[in-house]
Design a binder for these strands. Structure first.
Length: 483
RNA sequence: GGUCCCAUCGUCUAGUGGCCUAGGACAUCACCCUCUCAAGGUGGAGGCACGGGUUCGAAUCCCGUUGGGACUGCCA
């Protein structure tokens, strides 16, 4: 027999959510470590909220994360006839009944009731099924359903806390609780790994699964084991919201987070590798991952830690690989994918690939995301440097020693041999003649040349920029400062 | 309101009755390094929600309290 079968079943109702990424990762990790099968099933039955781009987004996000699926993508909408058949069988066996109550009528009736929710009004009215009636599941009055959860253990839900819920809308659409169970059942899913928010609906699905087994007679399918992952929350400890929280995986790709760093960070949310090292290879995660080790409590998605980890991954890249990975940001015209709404601050003609390769090591250890690279090296490629006005005011315009310093730098740089170490000594010397430590004397020069008071090491940068460009910028800065 | 879940530094976690004077990571602070910014190094501060049990012994087991969260739709 083959191993476990798990599925990731997102609905295409928005950008790919970091919670979905974590869920799919844990499914994938479990499948890979157990030699099982990872199925992708897109639950697109809510036609009003579906968009093709969301569907494509799921596929491309999974590809970016490196989570390959073994079967699918199946579209739940293609499985519609199964759902209808299951609903009809359930209806025929008395598990379902038609209900013609409107929401308003129900609300009116239950007003003042101790327990909100549907009151079972149509249970025994034998309403004929029409296009005005929904189909409700007859929840047993007594007893409990036990959900066997690998992470949390057995959880008991009393039946009387559930109303007779709708499984088929009046327009014939089979709703998530049933459709999802029918598909898991027909796909022989053995382990349902999903978010904890679905734990309360699990008893409904167990009840329907068992009812379906009853309808099928001999073709009984074993219930899956469940594993409800702890919620990902924001700083308010609320479930991550699409509206208020930065949850789109695409935006992290956009900002220049590396997929391997992103996956590594995601794995740490509710799980941890053995030992003290948190940066672990995918192979290690696959080897060590156990569902029973997953934490029970919600985890805050901490972008700061993600960013730090991303920086570590960037620094661990070989120089060549780093340069390659930078391409979408520094050479958007040459890559198939480019960060959305973002162009490089230079043109294709201005960009010098060889020069970028030479400066790359200077920025590699200074960025935490690839998206930070362009602004850090822009002064190498553009003619009109983007100035940080506050920095310019502070280090040049409002510094009384700056004009003299820049003038002597120009005199010195006109003749010095153009090498980083010699530029270093020359600058040190001209600063000392004005009684300034290098820390102070490099500041106006840096700002004049790069436009900023922070950036890669100055003298290596000057060497790569070249004498002519450097001198021009120093002179321009004097003009700009009105000196 | 009802049902269910959860509870270790600010955050993510290690810890499964004695190795805990509670370990690591992010963040934070100080110092070192240093041409800026980073990176790196060293060190510091910071936690078992509370109360009862059980036990020779509890962060760890049980009960309660408090606090947080999820769900409670003709959404998924």
């Amino acid at each position: 027999m083959s191993g476990p079968r798990v599925r990731f079943a997102p609905s295409p109702t928005g950008y790919f959510h970091v919670g979905s990424a974590r869920t799919s990762l844990f499914n994938w990790l479990f499948a890979r470590q157990s030699g099982g099968t990872f199925v992708l099933r897109i639950e697109d039955t809510d036609v009003e909220r579906n968009r093709d781009e969301w569907h494509d987004g799921i596929i491309s996000a999974l590809r970016w994360l490196g989570l390959d699926f073994d079967e699918g993508p199946f579209l739940q909408s293609d499985l519609l006839s199964d759902h209808v058949a299951a609903a009809n069988a359930l209806l025929a066996h008395g598990y379902l009944y038609a209900c013609d109550c409107t929401r308003e009528a129900i609300d009116e009736r239950i007003k003042g009731n101790a327990t909100p929710g549907y009151d079972g009004y149509c249970r025994d009215r034998h309403v004929a099924r029409t296009d005005q009636t929904a189909l409700r599941f007859r929840v047993p009055d007594d007893g409990t359903t036990i959900v066997h959860d690998i992470i949390r253990g057995d959880v008991a839900f009393p039946h009387d806390s559930y109303e007779d819920f709708i499984v088929v809308k009046s327009n014939g659409v089979v709703l998530f609780p049933l459709a999802n169970a029918v598909d898991d059942r027909s796909m022989n899913i053995t382990h349902v790994i999903r978010g904890e928010d679905l734990l309360p609906t699990t008893p409904k699905q167990v009840l329907m699964w068992e009812a379906l087994n009853e309808c099928d007679g001999v073709a009984s399918v074993a219930l899956p084991l469940y594993a409800h992952l702890p919620m990902l929350v924001n700083e308010q400890r609320k479930k991550l919201s699409k509206r208020k929280d930065p949850v789109a995986v695409e935006s992290y790709e956009d900002q220049g987070y590396l997929p391997e760093a992103f996956v590594n960070y995601l794995a740490l949310l509710g799980w941890s590798p053995r030992g003290d090292e948190e940066i672990v290879a995918l192979a290690t995660m696959i080897e060590q991952f156990r569902l029973e080790d997953v934490a029970h409590s919600p985890a805050f998605f901490d972008v700061k830690k993600l960013t730090h980890m991303n920086g570590e991954y960037i620094r661990a890249l070989s120089l060549g690989e780093f340069v390659r990975r930078c391409a979408p940001w520094v050479q958007p015209w040459s890559s198939a994918w480019r960060p959305s709404d973002r162009d490089a601050p230079w043109t294709e003609e201005q960009f010098d690939e060889t020069l970028f390769y030479k400066v790359a090591h200077l920025v590699q250890e200074r960025v935490a995301t690839l998206g930070e690279v362009p602004s850090m090296v822009q002064f190498f490629f553009v003619d009109d440097v983007a100035f940080d006005d506050a920095a310019f005011d502070k280090t040049v315009r409002n510094d009384p020693t700056a004009p003299e310093l820049l003038r002597s730098a120009i005199r010195s740089y006109e003749v010095v041999e153009w090498r980083a170490d010699l530029l270093h000594y020359a600058t040190l010397a001209l600063g000392e003649s004005l009684g300034l430590p290098l820390r102070k004397s490099q500041a106006p020069i840096r700002c004049a040349v790069t436009g900023s008071s922070v950036g890669p090491p100055l003298f290596e940068s000057l060497e790569l920029l070249g004498r002519d460009a450097t001198l021009k910028r120093l002179r321009d800065a004097l003009v700009r400062a009105g000196a």
